[in-house]
């Protein structure tokens, strides 16, 4: 079921075309990574979806509706935008409480949501004293208030420590896979979302570059294997003889194109060299992403 639908969305700020004819969908029960370098148009897309930015053309719909037409938006969409959306003098609990009041939700949801994100003990503290990671958790708590089935998160991993990122990954997967929610999460760091997402949409300079399932994007491309051995160069000719193309990398490692890891292993054994490193590289996604990032 399509939960989020973006159709031919365009938005310019002055002369800058921030989003240029972007279309994609997000299905219920999946986590979709929205990837692109900084300034690619991710935030503009997400803010159009949330009615904060008015697109020049095209549509951005959640559950088939424009955000501005929703009567009870917090029950339909949970949004986490950048981590500065708090009054520093207000406590975490009060921040959530007034959102509950405005949205007509029971105030008890504030405590529950704080508990869900692990902030129960900081409930009575002013947000001004919060770390970036705590602010991200509070932002997530506000998204959870109405128990929606669609989540839109803009760079939610920013400012989280490694344990926090681990926790966030698990939480987003839980929302999508156990509760059937549609999760759209943006990031400019591939490795951050690679282990979390089911689908990937890549945007650069306002245009959609790739989209597909994680599996599609990682297997479509050519696989390479990075190999490092103690030998002094007998391995490369042997690999080439077996039909591989070999790139010589800095520091003596080789990047092998066109052979499966198992075949390489056999050749290494035949050559009687000691293998010190062997890594299968999922080249396509990384490459696509790096190329896009490096253009900037």
């Amino acid at each position: 079921m399509t939960a989020i639908e973006i159709r031919n969305l365009s938005k310019s700020f002055g002369a800058v075309r921030a989003v240029d004819g972007v279309s994609f969908t997000v299905k219920a029960g999946t986590v979709t990574g929205y990837l692109g370098p900084n300034g690619a148009g991710k935030t503009t897309t997400l803010r159009s979806l949330l009615g904060l930015v008015t697109p020049d053309s095209g549509e951005a719909l959640v559950n088939g509706k424009r955000y501005r037409d929703m009567a009870t938006p917090l029950n339909e969409v949970g949004a986490v935008l950048e981590a500065t959306n708090f009054h520093p003098g207000r406590t975490a609990h009060n921040h959530l409480r007034l959102l509950c009041v405005a949205a007509g939700l029971p105030v008890a949801r504030a405590e529950e949501a704080l508990g869900q994100v692990g902030l129960a003990e900081a409930a009575g503290k002013r947000v001004g004293g919060f770390s970036l990671g705590m602010r991200q958790r509070l932002a997530l708590a506000s998204a959870l208030l109405g128990e929606p089935k669609v989540y839109i998160l803009d760079e939610p991993a920013n400012g989280l420590d490694p344990a926090g990122i681990q926790w966030l990954r698990g939480f987003l997967r839980h929302l999508a896979h156990d509760r059937g929610a549609a999760v759209l999460v943006s990031s400019h760091v591939l490795s951050e979302v690679e282990q979390t997402v089911d689908d990937i949409v890549i945007i650069a300079a306002g245009r959609l570059v790739r989209q597909g399932t994680l599996a599609e994007l990682t297997t479509n491309g050519e696989k390479t294997v990075r190999v490092r051995t103690t030998g002094d160069g007998e391995l490369a000719p042997a690999l080439e003889k077996a039909g591989a193309t070999v790139e010589r990398l800095d520091g003596g490692a080789l990047r092998v194109h066109g052979l499966e890891p198992e075949e390489i292993g056999r050749i290494v054994l035949d050559q009687r060299v000691v293998l010190t490193e062997m890594i299968a590289e999922r080249s396509d996604l990384q490459k696509v992403f790096l190329e896009l990032t490096e253009e900037r």
């Binding site: 904060l52 500065t84 959306n85 506000s142």
Partner: peptide, 18 residues
């Protein structure tokens, strides 16, 4: 204006898009 200053206006308009 403090809603714009601290960007709480985002949460306000997300809760009440009209």
């Amino acid at each position: 204006t403090s809603e714009y200053r601290y960007q709480t206006i985002t949460g306000t308009f997300l809760t009440t898009p009209r």
